[in-house]
Design a protein around this nucleic acid. Sequence first.
DNA 1: GATGAATGAGAGTTCATTCAT
DNA 2: GATGAATGAACTCTCATTCAT
Lengths: 199, 199, 199, 199
Amino acid sequence: MARKLQQRAIETRKRILTAARELFAERGYSGATVDEIALRAKANKQRIYAYFGNKQQLFETVVLQLFQEVDLFAQTDMQDCQPADLSRRVIAGFFKVHSEHPEFWRLLTWINLDEAIHVERLIGARSHENAAIREVFDRGIKEGVIKPMLFRDYLYTLLAASWFYFSNRRTLPLTLSPDLYSAGGRQLLIDEVAGLFNL
Amino acid sequence: MARKLQQRAIETRKRILTAARELFAERGYSGATVDEIALRAKANKQRIYAYFGNKQQLFETVVLQLFQEVDLFAQTDMQDCQPADLSRRVIAGFFKVHSEHPEFWRLLTWINLDEAIHVERLIGARSHENAAIREVFDRGIKEGVIKPMLFRDYLYTLLAASWFYFSNRRTLPLTLSPDLYSAGGRQLLIDEVAGLFNL
Amino acid sequence: MARKLQQRAIETRKRILTAARELFAERGYSGATVDEIALRAKANKQRIYAYFGNKQQLFETVVLQLFQEVDLFAQTDMQDCQPADLSRRVIAGFFKVHSEHPEFWRLLTWINLDEAIHVERLIGARSHENAAIREVFDRGIKEGVIKPMLFRDYLYTLLAASWFYFSNRRTLPLTLSPDLYSAGGRQLLIDEVAGLFNL
Amino acid sequence: MARKLQQRAIETRKRILTAARELFAERGYSGATVDEIALRAKANKQRIYAYFGNKQQLFETVVLQLFQEVDLFAQTDMQDCQPADLSRRVIAGFFKVHSEHPEFWRLLTWINLDEAIHVERLIGARSHENAAIREVFDRGIKEGVIKPMLFRDYLYTLLAASWFYFSNRRTLPLTLSPDLYSAGGRQLLIDEVAGLFNL
DNA sequence: GATGAATGAGAGTTCATTCAT
DNA sequence: GATGAATGAACTCTCATTCAT
């Protein structure tokens, strides 16, 4: 019996977290309301306070959980990856993750904007599991296929290119070029950016 | 003297706009409150409604004005610019603008996040005065100094690199590398990114 | 016990409705404030929004409920009523209702004044339970006791006479005659008006 | 020159009074706003305070002026009036006045509703110039044409019948009968009510 | 564990009124 | 006399949070 109760609680907790993640991502910290989170989670509002303390802590839990789940490198196909193809694969992977997990970059963006949110302790220095990438990268340089540069700045540029695409989706078509967001425009962009790193 | 009276109003209006710009940039549309804007502007709250109609319109006015003021290319030093040096100068200019006008990228970010804000008509297709840049860029390609690519994607990448630096300032040190934001780290990053475009 | 909790809410709701009815009747829709209604109801202001949505809907609920409660013909004593006495009894009944339920005519008056209020659908075509009156009325005409006229206009005139008395209570003493509102003056008026319908 | 200034002031004052009368009649005391009155009067808001002190006093001035202008008996055609026709003529006159001056009954209604308005001193005991009517009325009684009753209650009933028609225009069609407000229904009503007073 | 009921502070907005020229 | 600018209180409505069962 106690088992069952606990099980029910776990499910309620999970539903709250899911609803919170969606709403926080969609509307930001102050845009999302506790009422609506409870409503979407089909849970009683009070449960949120019982499980997470308050809105702030709920937010932090959401962020923490999301960061544990989403791995930026998870979608990078490294199978039989040759150095010449590395950059294209990596950036394509980033685009895929951002595309499939808009909550990821949205929440990150909100965190970066909102000075009131303290995430220092939340985001554990995530050692990106990018050893495989690094290996091909190093090989590429040694073989004279990839332009020599710091691995850190290599990743930075690829991340920046994909991040910018999503985080400025609403204004970029107006200020830079509308066809950036057509299927073809996107692919071309990816190829051109990836091409930068090859000699 | 009617002149003087109007002058007083103009100043009040300006104070409101300045305060609003700061607060909207800092906390976003829903995070900033009309009360606080009035307080910071040392103006009566009602004046905001007298001059701008409502909060939404105040926001739009702020955005419009900011976009008319801030020119992303204004800080790019094009004097005697040789193709080999172009990318470094351009990206340095972007960094400078973002550094001096954090409201610019912050407001843009808020706008990109908040689906409720409609600024399509606000941001007039800004014809970036980048003719000078384009000229050197084209020359650089012809001379075999710059890697051939679409000018659009060239700008995109440079913009992305600088945007990413500022918009993720709080989380990047935790996830990628802390020394990115030291003086040296920043310069190195700029140089490495700029170097990508040269053959 | 869920029952008991609900009971508490029901009482709060009722207190709000009562306070709202009083204040709306007293000061009209825009004259009454939500704050004051909450205060008088000894309820938290927010409860009003939780239970009724907004001020407008609260008003409509008040009107609807009042109209279901107050029956203009309820106070008419029809026991052993002879045609010769009908008019006096009916108008006396109207006076009694208006006297006991000032909110009734007051709210109706506000509604009639305020073009912004839409109550068309609220006031369901109330089938006045006046069958008993009509029967005696018809008999009176057949017997030559009551002056022949449309039943509709008969009711209209009696209603008008009582309505006018209450709705113009503040100005009539000044413009027509002060003793209209003494006990004797009122009775005399009733008798004289009632007498009009008899041959 | 001073003359001219004064003239201008008089006109501004008049415009304010007209606008105020319209808006007070339309929306009531608290429904009408000083801003809107000034706007409609094409006058500066401050003028209202210069000329009338405050909103309350403006209202009282409006009422006072209206009552001096509108005479309930002005539209009663007494030419060659025979007793048998008196009641019809008087009530028709009332209908005409109410029809042409909705502000009259509307403002009166608002005054009667709003306890906060003190009109005692405003409405000077207006000796209705109804001597002519009274004369015919008395003659009618003496000649056995008009039913004997107090003149006061005679007037009361006729006033009530016309008042009720206008002040309940929005709800009466719903509760009593819709055809009351057709051209024919109205005429019939007038005739039937007038007929009550004749033997 | 779960839920409905309640709360106080504060949000955006409007109002009658006064100030300054 | 006239006007634009300014004010503070009050209005409707919402939010994060707590209480009671």
